[in-house]
């Protein structure tokens, strides 16, 4: 199992490098505390906006505040984990442009692990923490007929969502091998994706929902499982059990992301840019 041993090697290297960055950050402790607080505030803005909206209305697209908070909590927690773990891949273009990417290629550990752990920013936990808090409140506040399956669905959904967003970060990073200046396109999918998912699917145009369900299956980060939890109909006719398809969808996202990454790296190594 060469793949498996490489994965283990990658995780180990990731840990080593991330550890170095955490220690580097701690060299400026006060600044670190400040940026964690700032990150909490910044990432909390989206929820503040939702609260402001609900100060004017009782429901948005037919969904109540606790229900929208459930969407928000699932989306932001998953995105927070993915961004903490793989967010640095988004700055790959800069490394390629200034040539420092080469220094990663002479090390005996997987490049993806090095890029992902590069400038590991612990302050990003702010987003996840804030997502978990909202998620916790929402789970208490929503009316759900809890069953074992539904209870299990929550953590599974968070993990799968994190994997889906991570795949998006990696694929976006690989795209920067081809277009180093196009980092912002990636933001449309990552940050745009998590923002989109904070609102109920009933708010959006049917074509957009269809695209987000079948083409870029972000809907499995929260829309589909949340609709199941809340006993709400999903705007598109999905088969029974679709809410539990998260792991499968995550796998479907990871495979092409990995392939695109390999393709991007190969193209870099043949063109040097």
């Amino acid at each position: 199992m060469r793949g498996a041993s490489r994965a283990v090697e990658g995780v180990r290297a990731y840990g080593l490098i991330a550890g170095m960055w955490i220690r580097s950050t701690m060299a400026y402790r006060a600044s670190f505390v400040l940026t964690v607080v700032g990150n909490l505030l910044l990432t909390g803005l989206d929820f503040v906006t939702i609260l402001l909206m609900f100060s004017q209305v009782d429901a948005l697209g037919g969904w109540t505040l606790p229900e929208v908070a459930l969407l928000y909590g699932l989306s932001v927690t998953a995105f927070g984990i993915a961004q903490l773990a793989f967010g640095s891949v988004a700055s790959l273009g800069g490394r390629v442009r200034d040539g420092s990417f080469d220094t990663l290629l002479v090390r005996p550990v997987p490049v993806l692990a090095q890029v992902a752990a590069d400038r590991f920013a612990l302050r990003r936990v702010g987003r996840g923490v804030q997502g978990v808090v909202v998620l916790g409140w929402a789970l208490v506040a929503v009316e759900v007929d809890w069953s074992v399956g539904k209870v299990l669905l929550v953590p599974v959904t968070v993990v799968c969502g994190a994997v889906i967003f991570s795949a998006l970060f990696v694929a976006g990073g690989a795209f920067q091998f081809l277009a180093q200046d196009a980092a912002e396109v990636q933001n449309a999918f990552t940050y745009g994706g998590t923002t989109l998912l904070q609102y109920p699917p009933s708010v959006f145009g049917r074509d957009l929902v269809r695209g987000v369900t079948f083409v870029l299956p972000l809907a499995f980060v929260n829309w589909v499982p949340a609709a199941h939890l809340l006993g709400r109909p999903y705007p598109l006719g999905l088969p029974e059990g679709a809410a539990f398809a998260g792991p499968l969808v995550a796998l479907v996202c990871v495979l092409p992301a990995a392939a695109v990454w390999r393709l991007g790296l190969r193209s870099y190594r043949s063109t040097g840019s």
Binding site: M53, L60, D181, A182, V185, L196
Partner: peptide, 30 residues
Amino acid sequence: YRVATAAGVFTNTVFGLILVYTYLALWEAR
């Protein structure tokens, strides 16, 4: 920065799309 500008246009359009739908829902409710 031509490529970066094009990328920015794309991103602003996507975010505009997302916001438009949420505002439409908000103004429909109120």
